[in-house]
């Protein structure tokens, strides 16, 4: 990889106007050197301000930097230049889904698949979003057999790792979105860690710091399972809280309480790498929600210890 970067750097140095800047920025991004990747990509875009591939690359870099708003902005600019740009459409779908706008993601991914019906990445992402919304999965093109892996993915709502730092690197230009299934299915599949606590499979969620569901579950207003979607979004909160606590010398963060229009949320770490969310109706006092969270935290901690995790 470093040889690729050296070679691409040499090409760009010899011809600063070369479009190879996208390849170089992409190589740097895959290596995890997001700031340098961004400098290279922005340098290229300064010379080629209408280059959709460049904006698409910037979108992926911002995902790696955990900056979804800027990623979304970059993909928006790519689509303004090239409305059918596959990478930007998939990226925008990913960003919308991660931001909680599954409907918006659905519309964008349907556009991606309509323009590129043979693209498996777009199809998988669209299927995932449709399942999250309780919509029947997209049928594959009539002239293409269903691959075994794709069939399994449709029938079994196995969560796809949503880590932005990993997914784009393994599937360039095809950001995956976390899978989700019906709330009942999810409840049946996940271990009963919180048995005895109210909302054990619909209002309490254990997940890891990469946004993967571990146990419990969270359902949306329509009863559909939103565990994977919530876990993906909340993992970002955890890292932001860690950064905030560190910069302000507050020590380790212990809980985050968010009072919102429809519910109160309590987020708490459960040992290294695991996080807990407890959601309670807005009418439930915050103090009580915190007590429930403490019990759930203890249950999760004990369960993880039994798993050797």
């Amino acid at each position: 990889m470093s040889e690729d970067i050296r070679a691409l750097s040499a090409v760009l140095a010899a011809d600063p106007a070369s479009l190879v800047y996208v390849d170089l920025a992409e190589a740097l991004r895959r290596r995890g050197d997001f700031e340098q990747a961004l400098r290279v990509a922005n340098g290229g875009l300064a010379r080629h301000p209408e280059h959709a591939d460049g904006f698409d690359c910037v979108g992926r870099i911002h995902v790696g930097r955990d900056d979804l708003p800027r990623a979304r902005e970059a993909w928006g600019r790519a689509l303004a230049v090239a409305p059918d740009h596959l990478g930007a459409l998939k990226g925008m779908g990913f960003a919308l889904y991660r931001a909680g706008d599954a409907r918006g993601a659905l519309a964008v991914l349907e556009r991606a698949l309509a323009g590129h019906p043979a693209d498996d990445g777009a199809r998988r992402a669209l299927d995932t979003v449709r399942r999250a919304l309780g919509i029947q999965s997209a049928a594959p093109p009539a002239d293409r057999p269903v691959e075994q892996g794709a069939r399994v993915a449709v029938e079994t709502p196995t969560p796809v790792p949503p880590s932005p730092a990993v997914v784009p690197a393994t599937a360039p230009g095809a950001p995956a979105v976390p899978a989700a299934g019906a709330a009942a299915d999810a409840a049946a599949e996940l271990p009963p860690v919180f048995r005895g606590l109210e909302g054990a499979t619909a209002d309490i969620l254990l997940f890891d710091d990469r946004g993967l569901v571990v146990a419990g579950g969270l359902s949306g207003a329509d009863g559909a399972d939103v565990s994977a979607l919530a876990a993906a979004g909340l993992a970002g909160v955890s890292s932001e809280a860690g950064r905030t606590a560190q910069y302000l010398a507050l020590g380790a963060w212990t809980t985050i309480v968010a009072e919102a229009d429809r519910a109160n949320l309590v987020l708490a770490p459960v040992g290294p790498g695991a996080l807990l969310l407890v959601r309670r109706d807005r009418g439930v006092p915050v103090g009580l929600a915190l007590r429930v969270a403490e019990r759930a935290q203890a249950a999760a901690s004990a369960w993880l210890a039994r798993q050797g995790a």
Partner: peptide, 15 residues
């Protein structure tokens, strides 16, 4: 993403 709606108050407790 959790369906909780707009946040009205936020509290982060640390050590």
């Amino acid at each position: 993403a959790t369906g909780a709606g707009r946040v009205r108050f936020l509290q982060m407790d640390a050590a």
